[in-house]
């Protein structure tokens, strides 16, 4: 047996163990505790979890050695004598999906009673009614706040472009695989970008508003950080997908590495980059309204103030303005992206 086969076998066994432990834990916690015992918030305890995991591993170990009873072997395509009469892996996958679905329903506390309760619906109806009657007396401040938001999003995007552009080359696997330094630069850049991206702009805005004070500047910085991370990822994926031919040709002329990138890579990526960037500005305008909620300035902050005072007619006007702006931005960015294709 060769090495890759052994590794595949180990992976198959591990996935079997995971599937069985997972289904046992879900069955125990959700089906038994919540549905049968009816506890609303079951207490988490390590002992029961570890015991169920262990039993799951035990079952997986037993079934792993019985023919046609291992899902992991099926996934990894390890051949066994085909037994079409009883495709166990199929039943098991249906079973996994169903218990996950039931657990999901329970965990998200889906409740038809709450959705259709008359008191709740009438309250929401009142709010909606007020919002459908927007108060136009605050039109001017709302408009100015919206303009602030659009500019904030614009500046965040503009600042993000050069940084993301530079970083994207370090985050492109095909450009960074020629030696160990390049590879470690690639891994580091990817890691930092992933961390930055996984922290929501809302959280960045909270952190930054402590640093530079509440206002549009904090919101702009938060958007900018998040834009750098997402743009660099999109850009670098674009770089990874380019045609290697021009790079080869430029290398053959005796060009310097920087010239190779400038002539072999850049002309191939400029248009997709532009398209991503415009799309990002569009996203940033939408995000900027949310950022405003945590003191990032602009229309979001205004929205937060009126919502806190339960002035729903004013909230209605702000929502209306945001909707119109988002629609215009959406339309414009789609048109521009189409035009430069």
């Amino acid at each position: 047996m060769n090495k890759t086969k052994k590794i595949d076998l180990v992976k198959a066994y591990l996935s079997d163990a995971f599937f069985w432990s997972y289904s046992l834990i879900v069955c125990h916690k959700v089906i038994y505790d919540k549905l049968i015992l009816g506890t609303r918030y079951p207490v988490f305890s390590w002992t029961t979890t570890i015991i169920t995991t262990f039993i799951g591993i035990l079952i997986a170990t037993i079934l792993f050695n019985i023919k046609n009873f291992s899902v992991g072997k099926k996934i990894k395509n390890i051949s066994e004598i085909e037994n079409n009469n009883f495709p166990f892996y199929k039943f098991f996958s249906y079973f996994l999906f169903i218990i996950t679905f039931v657990a999901g329903l329970k965990i998200s506390q889906v409740s038809m009673d709450d959705l259709f309760s008359s008191s709740g619906a009438s309250g929401a109806g009142k709010l909606f009614g007020a919002m459908l009657n927007p108060n136009f007396s605050i039109f001017e401040p709302a408009l100015f706040a919206t303009i602030e938001t659009i500019f904030m999003a614009f500046i965040a995007t503009v600042f993000a472009i050069p940084i993301a552009f530079l970083l994207s080359f370090f985050a492109a696997r095909n450009l960074m695989s020629h030696n160990i330094f390049a590879k470690s630069a690639y891994v580091t850049t990817r890691f930092v970008l992933n961390i930055t991206r996984s922290i929501e702009p809302l959280v960045w805005a909270t952190i930054l508003s402590v640093w530079v004070g509440i206002g549009p500047f904090a919101g702009m910085l938060a958007l900018c950080l998040h834009s750098v991370a997402s743009l660099a990822k999109l850009y670098s994926e674009q770089i990874e997908g380019i045609n290697d031919g021009p790079i080869e040709a430029m290398t053959a002329t005796g060009a310097h590495q920087i010239q190779i990138i400038w002539f072999g890579v850049v002309p191939q990526i400029v248009l997709p980059f532009l398209s991503f960037t415009i799309y990002r500005w569009d996203i940033n305008v939408r995000m900027a309204t949310v950022i405003g909620l945590v003191g990032g300035g602009g229309i979001g902050t205004l929205l937060m103030q009126y919502q806190g005072l339960a002035k729903w007619n004013e909230v209605g006007l702000i929502v209306l303005i945001i909707a119109i702006v988002v629609m215009i931005m959406d339309f414009a960015s789609a048109k521009i992206r189409e035009a430069i294709k």
Binding site: G245, P246, E248, A249, M250, T251, A252, T253, G254, A255, H256, F263, G264, P267, Q268, V270, L271
Partner: peptide
């Protein structure tokens, strides 16, 4: 780079710079 500059190369797919 100097050595390469004295050796030209052409390719099956031309490998010109687009745009």
């Amino acid at each position: 780079r100097e050595a390469r500059s004295k050796i030209g190369m052409i390719f099956q797919h031309f490998n010109l710079i687009p745009r």
